[in-house]
């Protein structure tokens, strides 16, 4: 681990820019957006309004084009993604456990570099307490599935950068001149801060919830009644992977996929109108059970890592923490 000032962070971006398009939180007229940087100095420390999912599974992308008698399939390149939070990185691991077979996803994943920003401030909407907590540690429950290349912390105006993979060490090596080793005292303060934040994030318990998520729980219809079907909770969720596929015909045959939402009626509707999830509450149930029960049963992990993005994006204020608490209560 090396410690330095803001130059260390800028230096990191510069080093990565030599090999990647760097995606990091940056300011867009009063908003913080996770987006490609043009300049190293643009990176900010605030949590961006969008999740990193689109840099592995874009909102919309071309699967193939057929023109002049031949197919052309894209071979997209990944990004160096900075400033995503541990919860989001874990969610990307969940995404990979499903999408890992997808050629476009895989091509991006294999050529991506991840630098996670550990949370040294509690976040207002997250609940990662049970799901790994505010840093991606060596004993992280998700460690067997992968690790970010780097992790950085910020505390009292100082930046702490740590490498978790070989590739990360290489990059860190190039930054030696911009920082120094961390003192025992600094590390201790950092550990304290992380454990405080962690305590704070434990207010919502998740482990064991699969036992409580009954098929006929009243929570589904209660929340479904309030859902306006905007799809945002799915779109903003870094682990939701569902997509729709459509064809375009612009002189050439183009097949496109785009993010989809299981809360929409058409998601499961079949020709002539038959729909196994016709009612809104059936779809709300699907969203909850898929995340907290089915996925857990088949992979051992929840398909939710407590980042809180869904509740931030929900116009109706549907709060997943509230849903979970209700499942516990009844």
């Amino acid at each position: 681990m090396i410690v330095g000032g803001r130059e260390l962070l800028d230096g990191l971006v510069k080093v990565l820019m030599e090999r990647w398009t760097v995606v990091a939180p940056r300011e867009v007229e009063g908003n913080v957006v996770l987006a490609p940087l043009e300049d190293a100095g643009e990176i900010v420390l605030d949590r961006p309004l969008n999740s990193p999912k689109e840099y592995l599974l874009p909102q919309e992308e071309i699967l193939f084009e057929y023109r002049d008698g031949g197919f052309k399939a894209p071979e997209p390149r990944g990004y160096a993604i900075l400033g995503i939070r541990p919860c989001e990185f874990r969610a990307l691991l969940m995404l990979k456990s499903v999408m890992g077979e997808d050629p476009l996803f895989l091509s991006r994943w294999n050529s991506s570099f991840f630098a996670v920003q550990a949370c040294t401030e509690p976040c207002p909407s997250g609940f990662c307490g049970d799901l790994g907590g505010p840093e991606f540690s060596g004993i992280d429950p998700y460690r067997p599935l992968g690790a970010p290349d780097l992790q950085y912390y910020t505390l009292d105006g100082r930046v702490f950068v740590d490498a978790l993979t070989e590739r990360g060490k290489e990059v860190l090596g190039a930054l030696r001149d911009l920082g120094e080793g961390a003192t025992e005292e600094e590390l201790e303060r950092l550990r304290m801060r992380i454990s405080e934040v962690w305590e704070d994030m434990k207010r919502v318990r998740v482990v064991g919830i699969e036992e409580r998520a009954r098929w006929d729980h009243p929570a589904y219809s209660y929340f479904a009644e309030r859902c306006i079907q905007c799809g945002a909770c799915n779109f903003e969720c870094p682990s939701c992977f569902c997509f729709d596929i459509r064809d375009e015909d612009e002189g050439a045959w183009v097949r496109v996929r785009e993010w989809d939402s299981c809360l929409l009626e058409g998601f499961s509707k079949m020709a002539l109108g038959a729909n196994p999830r016709k009612r809104e509450e059936d779809r709300m149930r699907q969203r909850i059970l898929h995340k907290f029960k089915y996925f857990k049963e088949t992979t051992g992990f929840y398909m939710c890592t407590g980042c809180g993005r869904c509740l931030e994006a929900c116009p109706s204020g549907i709060d997943l923490r509230e849903v979970i608490s209700w499942l516990w209560r009844e």
């Binding site: 009063g30 908003n31 913080v32 957006v33 309004l49 969008n50 689109e54 874009p58 909102q59 306006i228 079907q229 905007c230 799809g231 945002a232 779109f235 929409l264 931030e312 994006a313 929900c314 116009p315």
Partner: peptide, 20 residues
Amino acid sequence: SVYPERSHPSNAGTLCIKGW
């Protein structure tokens, strides 16, 4: 990509499906 604007007083980080 399309993002709901967080700092906008009317929608404060949300959009409906037509916006998305």
